[in-house]
Amino acid sequence: MPAASPPPPGRDGVVPPGWPEEVRPPGAPDWERTAVGWLYDLVPPEYRSHEVLRRYPVLLARFAADHVGAGLEAARAGWRTVRVELADELPPEAMEAAMAAYEREGARLAAAARAVELVGGALRGERWVPRM
């Protein structure tokens, strides 16, 4: 009988909940390369032109945290104000769809913000230890 295959990287308790699937766990081969690629996917493409961000992944994580945080705040503000600002412009079904879209986007961005925090911490040398 063949030996059981090892669990996929990062899914064996090595990374905290909320760790992005696209990023290998700290210490794995090329983990920082996968972290940098994932962080660049979260920010505007123009950020790739900044040499300082390529040179210092910790700084890229900071930029990504700021960018995702701003998007999250925008989604929250939109959710709070869309009913008042567009009440006369949208039919009820469009308003409900808009509210649902803001909720989904807010949840996606909140998860991304948590993941950026985790990856940024790992880039700074923080290590997560699971609790028993």
Rank of each mutant, 00 (worst) to 15 (best):
V14C: 08
H50E: 12
V129S: 07
M1G: 15
E126C: 01
W79V: 02
Y40I: 03
Y40N: 08
A35T: 00
A111E: 11
A111N: 05
V36T: 08
D66C: 09
L53Y: 15
V58Y: 00
G78V: 12
L109T: 10
G121A: 12
V52K: 01
D12E: 09
A87M: 03
V43H: 03
G120T: 06
A35N: 00
P20D: 07
L53D: 04
V116T: 03
S49K: 13
E126I: 07
A115M: 05
P29C: 09
G78S: 11
P6Q: 09
R24M: 15
V52Q: 05
Y56G: 01
V68M: 09
G106L: 08
L72D: 04
T81C: 14
L109Y: 08
E73M: 11
H50Q: 10
R80G: 02
P92D: 04
D12F: 04
G18C: 08
R55N: 05
G78C: 11
G71K: 05
E117M: 03
W128L: 01
R24F: 15
W38R: 00
G37W: 02
V14H: 05
S5M: 13
E32H: 00
R80S: 13
P92N: 06
R108C: 11
G125Q: 09
E85N: 06
E103C: 01
H50V: 02
E32M: 05
W19V: 07
P29Y: 11
G106K: 08
W38G: 01
A101P: 10
A97D: 13
A98R: 13
Y56P: 00
Y102K: 10
P8I: 08
V84F: 04
R55V: 07
V36W: 04
A115E: 04
E22D: 14
R24K: 11
R131Q: 14
A35S: 01
L109Q: 10
V129P: 06
P6V: 06
M95F: 10
E117W: 10
L118S: 09
Y56T: 09
P44G: 09
P6S: 12
L72W: 10
G106F: 05
D12R: 06
T81N: 15
E73R: 14
R83F: 03
E46G: 14
T81A: 13
S49F: 12
A112D: 12
M99P: 03
D12N: 10
P20M: 07
R11I: 00
R104Q: 14
W19N: 14
R55C: 04
P130A: 04
P7I: 05
S5L: 15
A3W: 12
G78D: 12
G71Y: 04
R62T: 05
W79C: 06
R124S: 10
E117V: 06
A28P: 06
P16H: 05
A87L: 10
A111K: 11
E21V: 15
R76N: 12
A122G: 12
L90Y: 00
A28S: 14
E21P: 04
L86T: 06
V58G: 02
T81D: 14
G69L: 08
G121I: 08
